[in-house]
Amino acid sequence: MGLGKKITHSAEKSKGRMKKDTGRATGNRSLEAKGKGEQTKGGLKQVGQNIKDAFKR
Rank of each mutant, 00 (worst) to 15 (best):
M1Y: 06
M1C: 05
G2T: 13
G2N: 15
L3D: 09
L3G: 03
L3T: 07
L3H: 06
L3M: 08
G4D: 14
G4L: 14
G4N: 13
K5F: 10
K5E: 15
K5Y: 09
K6A: 11
K6D: 10
K6Q: 11
K6Y: 07
I7D: 02
I7S: 03
I7Q: 05
I7A: 06
T8G: 03
S10Y: 11
S10R: 08
S10L: 13
A11N: 07
E12L: 12
E12C: 04
E12S: 06
K13Y: 07
K13I: 01
K13R: 14
K13M: 13
K13F: 07
K13A: 10
S14N: 11
S14Q: 10
S14V: 08
S14F: 09
S14D: 11
K15E: 12
K15I: 13
K15G: 10
G16H: 07
G16N: 08
G16Q: 09
G16D: 09
R17P: 00
R17G: 01
M18Q: 13
M18R: 12
M18P: 00
M18L: 15
M18G: 00
K19C: 03
K20H: 12
K20Q: 14
K20S: 14
D21T: 10
D21V: 08
T22R: 13
T22E: 15
T22N: 09
G23T: 06
G23K: 03
R24D: 10
R24W: 01
R24A: 15
R24N: 10
R24S: 12
A25G: 07
A25N: 12
T26Q: 13
T26E: 15
T26W: 10
T26P: 03
G27H: 05
G27D: 04
G27K: 06
G27W: 04
N28Y: 01
N28F: 02
R29I: 08
R29W: 02
R29Q: 13
S30N: 11
L31E: 15
L31Y: 00
L31K: 12
E32A: 13
E32N: 06
E32P: 02
A33M: 12
A33N: 13
A33T: 14
A33K: 15
K34F: 05
K36D: 12
G37E: 12
G37K: 11
E38M: 10
E38D: 13
E38S: 12
E38C: 02
Q39R: 11
T40E: 09
T40Q: 09
T40N: 05
T40H: 04
K41N: 07
K41Y: 04
K41V: 00
G42S: 03
G42K: 02
G43P: 00
G43F: 01
L44R: 10
L44N: 08
L44T: 02
L44C: 02
K45N: 07
K45M: 07
Q46E: 08
Q46N: 02
V47H: 03
V47C: 00
V47P: 00
V47K: 08
G48P: 01
G48C: 01
G48T: 03
G48V: 00
Q49R: 08
Q49L: 05
Q49G: 00
Q49A: 14
N50M: 13
N50A: 15
I51Y: 05
I51A: 10
K52Q: 14
D53I: 01
D53V: 04
D53W: 00
A54P: 01
A54T: 12
A54S: 14
A54E: 10
A54Y: 11
F55H: 14
F55E: 12
K56P: 01
R57V: 15
R57L: 13
R57M: 13
